[in-house]
Computed example of a mutant assay.
Amino acid sequence: MNRTELRFALHLIGFLDSVEGFEDGMVKLRDRRWLVWHPDVMAALFRHDRDLRHPPSRTLSPLLGNRSVLWLDGEEHAKYRRTLAPMLRGTRYQALIDEMVERSIAELPSGPVGLAEWTRRLTLRITGRILFGVDDEELLAAFTRWLDRRLGSRVRTLAHRYLTPGTTRFDPELDRMLLHRAETAEPPALAAFLPPEDLRDQVVSLLFAGHETTASATAWTVYWIDRTPGLAQDLLGDADLLEATIRESLRLSPPATLAGNRMSADGMVITPSIYLAHRRAATYDHPHTFDPTRSPPPPGAFFPFGGGVRHCLGKDLALTEIRTIVTALLRHRRIHLNTQRSCTPQLRGAAMAPPPSLAMVATCRR
């Protein structure tokens, strides 16, 4: 591993910030591996995505498993997406989401609560209900502990990735609990449609992908609303402004910094950077300024949910959850965050969340 790739691996955000000004929108990480973010390159890459391979993540594949839909290719990948897509339509679960959001807001304590922790707990509850049909706090708590032991800090993530590479990080007892819930779910969300040998990997993948980035995106949206004077009041009853606010939060604070590796037939690895594409000065005026009134960007310049054949299956569900949570919070609570001008992100794998120190105080509206 050369110095450039080492910096990319050990200090991801700092490295991305250091190359932000590269006008050609790409940097060589090592021989035959490039980090790219120029919009023209991204648009072309996503257009030809079906012709590329999608190597597993060295961080996530030992957790999610090699049979995860996130790593499959070709017709097998397309078949899984066709199977899973109907499960992940946001409007299908609006009543369930409303119910769980209202309950979680009602349970908010009077004192400070970690914003990212609260949104992760809520979105995991929603994902668990969608997959299993029931609330199982014991199971979800066990899943959270398992995930936090591996991704809960940058040090844990790097240790998990580099100290014992090539080994799985499965927890047999947790897997037993997850499979039992999946196999007894009413109505059967997964077990009736997936082969038994793939069920564990898809359940874990959907639980992880179904809540982690949605939670981060929701927390960042609340953060930017709090940072923008008058915006919270303006958002009440203005659906268009809410959509623009969420979109701008996804631009400036994307919940994933990278969009997954692509590999050409001759072995060239290309890693798209969402973070850098969204902050490119040649694309966005004043790219570090939060501005919901921005005009739509050109193709290839905005892809918070990835792109090509790997675009996030849960995009619609995620946006439904973000809208619902933010709207309910603003309607029922006055939100104050204990933040200064800067808010250093916490990396959980390649996902980017607000730090645990960012606390929310939610007081009842009179």
Rank of each mutant, 00 (worst) to 15 (best):
H180V: 14
S205E: 05
S216Q: 13
R169M: 12
L236H: 15
D240Y: 11
R176K: 07
L206H: 06
D226V: 15
I246Q: 05
A192G: 14
D198N: 12
P188S: 15
T228Q: 09
E186V: 14
T167D: 09
A217H: 05
I225Q: 03
W224D: 14
R176F: 00
L194E: 00
G237H: 10
D198F: 10
M177A: 11
R169S: 13
D175K: 00
R251H: 00
A244W: 08
A217V: 05
S205D: 06
D226K: 12
E197W: 01
T167K: 13
A244D: 15
R176L: 03
G210W: 00
T214Y: 06
A182M: 03
P195W: 04
T218M: 01
E173D: 13
H211C: 00
L206N: 01
S249D: 10
L194A: 01
L206A: 07
L231H: 13
R247V: 12
A182R: 00
S205C: 08
L242F: 09
P196G: 07
D226A: 15
A189Q: 00
A209W: 07
Q202G: 00
L190F: 05
L250A: 11
E243I: 09
I225G: 01
L235Q: 09
T213P: 15
I225A: 06
L207K: 00
L235S: 10
P187S: 06
Y223V: 13
T213Y: 15
A219F: 02
W220C: 06
T221R: 04
T167N: 09
D171K: 02
V222N: 02
M177D: 05
A185M: 06
V204K: 14
P188A: 11
T245N: 13
L199N: 06
A215S: 12
A191E: 04
E197D: 14
L206C: 07
L242C: 09
H180T: 14
E212H: 10
D238G: 07
P229S: 04
D175V: 00
